[in-house]
């Protein structure tokens, strides 16, 4: 089971050692420098979008984002809210993935909601894509694939805004390790008959 620290900023790796072990190994090695790795951005200038932000439109249930529609999928729904499609995640390429997901519409706003039973293998760069393709494979198709944002957690209820019109013809949701271009989990959405 994963445990979360409150610390968000990079820290020297010595902090990863506990108490006596840290002291003992620190003494033994003596010369360990702070070991934060440096990052070099190799993307073309045109692909960079500026400063860091919260994952776009993404929130765990109970949180709030500009695209928030209000109630989570486990709670009650507002009268004008319509559940458009539902699906269940399955792991891909040997990764684990399970749990429900649903697409909601309220007026012109769309939102994808992951159920409380959602869980997926922990990968370093988990992005969420809505696509018309049955398989993403190792490429991102700018026409077919819409990136909705990044996961906010590897399990539990969460929601993410879907740009207007992005759902047209797109009924496959992928959790995708974007840096390495590997599928992690997929849910095929089925339209809900009203």
């Amino acid at each position: 089971m994963d445990r979360t620290d409150t610390q968000e900023q990079p820290a020297p790796c010595r902090a990863t050692l506990d108490g006596a072990a840290a002291a003992w190994l620190g003494l033994l090695v003596g010369l360990l420098p702070a070991c934060e790795a440096r990052f070099v951005d190799l993307r073309p200038e045109s692909e960079r979008t500026g400063s860091p932000s919260q994952p776009s439109g993404m929130s765990t249930d109970g949180g709030s984002t500009p695209g928030d529609l209000g109630e989570g999928s486990d709670g009650g729904t507002q009268p004008s809210e319509v559940r458009v499609a539902i699906g269940r995640f399955e792991g891909r390429a040997g990764h684990g993935g399970s749990g429900g997901v649903a697409l909601y519409r309220q007026g012109s706003a769309l939102e994808l909601r992951f159920d409380a039973d959602f869980t997926v293998s922990a990968v370093p760069g988990p992005a969420i894509f809505l696509t018309s393709r049955a398989d993403m494979g190792g490429s991102i198709d700018a026409q077919a694939d819409i990136k909705l944002g990044t996961l906010s957690a590897f399990n539990g209820a969460q929601r993410i805004a879907v740009p207007a019109g992005a759902d047209m013809g797109r009924r496959n949701v992928f959790v995708y390790c974007q840096p390495f271009r590997v599928e992690v989990a997929k849910a095929a959405l089925m339209d809900v008959t009203q």
Binding site: Q9, P10, E36, A37, R38, F39, D41, R43, E47, R48, T49, G50, S51, P52, S53, P55, S56, P124, G125, P126, A127, G149, T150, C177, Q178, P179, F180
Partner: peptide
């Protein structure tokens, strides 16, 4: 690893 760039830069850094 930590990247001070955008979200995608952070995903890349974290993956390496």
């Amino acid at each position: 690893p930590f990247a001070s760039g955008d979200d995608e830069a952070q995903l890349i850094a974290r993956s390496l």
